[in-house]
Amino acid sequence: MSLHIGIVGAGTMGAGIAHVAALHQCTVSLYDIHDDIIRRGIERITADLKKGVEKQKFSEEEMTAALKRIRPRTSLADLDTCDIIIEAVIEDLLVKKDLFKKLDAIAHHTTILATNTSSFSVTSIASVTKKPHRIVGLHFFNPVHLMNLVEVVRGEHTSEETIARALEFCQQIGKTSVKVNDSPGFIVNRVARPFYGEALRLLDEGVASVEEIDRIVRSEGGFKMGPFELMDLIGVDVNFAVTQSVYDQFFHDLRYRPHPIQKQMVESGKLGRKTKKGFYNY
């Protein structure tokens, strides 16, 4: 049975989720407030799909069929019959809460409402709805069509049936899912914190240089990238924001305290590859 998936927000994450869902036989209603935002989203999906064809991951016919399954939508009310609606708007709790209040009113009572948040509590988002048992976190990773993981986040009121259907959806779109109870940073963003935080402390204490720490982590640890080159790739500002968010949500537990070096780099505009300057010059 093919699912009908609604996606709210046609930015990087929304487009990525639409790409993967459509490629795996789902009908996708892709919503955003303006036609041109959706058009840009679909252009991005088309470009990524073309790369998939070039790499012979799927055929040109499959690409064309996938694109046909994506329907642009500028009215939220058109999402009412979706099996699952996935929110992928900006990381702003008030914006998300406002949206979920609307979705809760519009969507059919069997529709699952999922949030792709990486930094807010699913329970907190669900608190503005009348049916919190159908709210779940579906945390995808960027770029969605290349990263195979989805964290399925159980809020305080999320029902077993909602979790089961969310897991089934992940399987249908070819993703590996892990179950997480709602807590700051879920699994990945939390457990990865010391990889960066400890490296920054080692640097600050003069134990080794940026280059040496990266080389050690790669060659002695077997990691694909060292902490500093990875921060440059992700964006020092993005990495700092995640650290700050986990720290705040744990009510300033010292284990998660951000490092001043990172803040200073953000304030001086050394954000990594995207600004050509970070821990390295590009």
Binding site: F141, M147, N148, L149, E151, T176, V178, K179, V180, N181, S183, F186, I187, V188, R190, V191, A192, F195
Partner: peptide
Amino acid sequence: VASPGDIDTAMKLGT
């Protein structure tokens, strides 16, 4: 927060 197996899977695939 999660099972040991799911934590291992998440860190290998997510990062």
